[in-house]
Amino acid sequence: MNNNYDKIANYYDTLSRLVFFRSQLNAQINQLHFIKKNSKVLIVGGGTGWILEELAKLCSEGLRIIYVEISAKMIALSQKRSYKNNTVEFINLGIEDFATDEDFDIILTPFLFDNFPQQRAIKVFEQLNGYLKNGALWFLVDFSLQKKKGKWWKWLLLKSMYRFFKLLGIVEANRLTDMNPYFLKRNYQIVEERLYYGGFITATIFKK
């Protein structure tokens, strides 16, 4: 199944830290303080669910979280996390098969769009845009080739990553889609942007 990390679910966090140390982790947690108590949160592609514990450190109660993840093994690992008195609904689906009438105060998409070819990435963006309230926040964390400094090694590393995941039959994309133009086209404003791992990882908070 495309973009399903079942094969490496038990090793994903270890592999991530071997390559990126704490950069992927820090890129996802350093801006969580923008999330207010009693927010309704949509997390798409949350992986092993450690982000739930980080959210619980900031808000031990009051969050209502919808957790959409295509990997059944990732869901199983996530369900074992301690999220204290927050409410979490786990949904084992690919995001394109998920539908809801609810709207959200926060959307988190950690390393989601790098999985998709451009047209599917745009389709998922438009879908999620429809779930976010006006004035609400979207936390986009992903790889980036937009900064010129060190672009050669970033390109080489990204190419190696795609090749590795292709060999495992996991990821369908062959190249990275820059999502910023689609946010700006929809008149999102950048609240904060932080760079990690020499600018290869970008964490951006967009306000709708």
Rank of each mutant, 00 (worst) to 15 (best):
G62S: 00
E53W: 04
G46Q: 11
L52A: 04
G47S: 13
C59N: 13
N38G: 11
E61Y: 06
I35E: 04
G45M: 12
A56V: 05
I51E: 07
K40D: 06
I35F: 07
I35H: 03
V41G: 04
L52P: 01
G47H: 14
H33N: 15
G46Y: 10
K40V: 00
V41A: 10
G49T: 11
K57A: 04
S39Y: 11
H33D: 15
L52I: 02
G49N: 09
K57G: 01
I43N: 05
L42F: 06
A56Q: 08
L58R: 01
N38E: 14
S60G: 13
T48I: 12
T48G: 14
F34P: 11
S39E: 11
G49E: 08
A56G: 07
G47R: 12
G49A: 11
I51H: 07
F34N: 15
E54N: 08
G46C: 15
V44P: 00
E54K: 08
E54C: 05
V44E: 07
T48N: 15
V41E: 08
I51G: 06
K37R: 14
G45A: 15
C59I: 11
V44Q: 11
C59M: 06
E53T: 01
F34A: 14
L58F: 00
E61P: 01
L58H: 05
L42I: 14
T48R: 10
G62N: 00
L55D: 06
L42P: 07
E61G: 07
S39G: 14
L52G: 00
K40P: 02
G45L: 10
G62M: 01
N38R: 14
L55F: 04
C59T: 08
E53A: 04
V44G: 08
S60C: 09
L42G: 04
L58V: 01
L55R: 07
N38W: 14
L58Y: 02
E54L: 04
L42K: 04
I43A: 01
K37D: 09
K40M: 02
A56M: 03
H33S: 15
L52F: 02
G47E: 11
G49I: 04
W50D: 06
G49H: 10
I43V: 06
F34D: 09
L55T: 05
T48E: 09
S60T: 08
C59V: 13
E61I: 12
K37L: 09
G49P: 10
V41D: 05
S39D: 13
I51T: 06
I51Y: 05
G46K: 12
E61Q: 12
G47I: 10
G62W: 02
T48Y: 09
L42V: 05
L55W: 02
I43C: 00
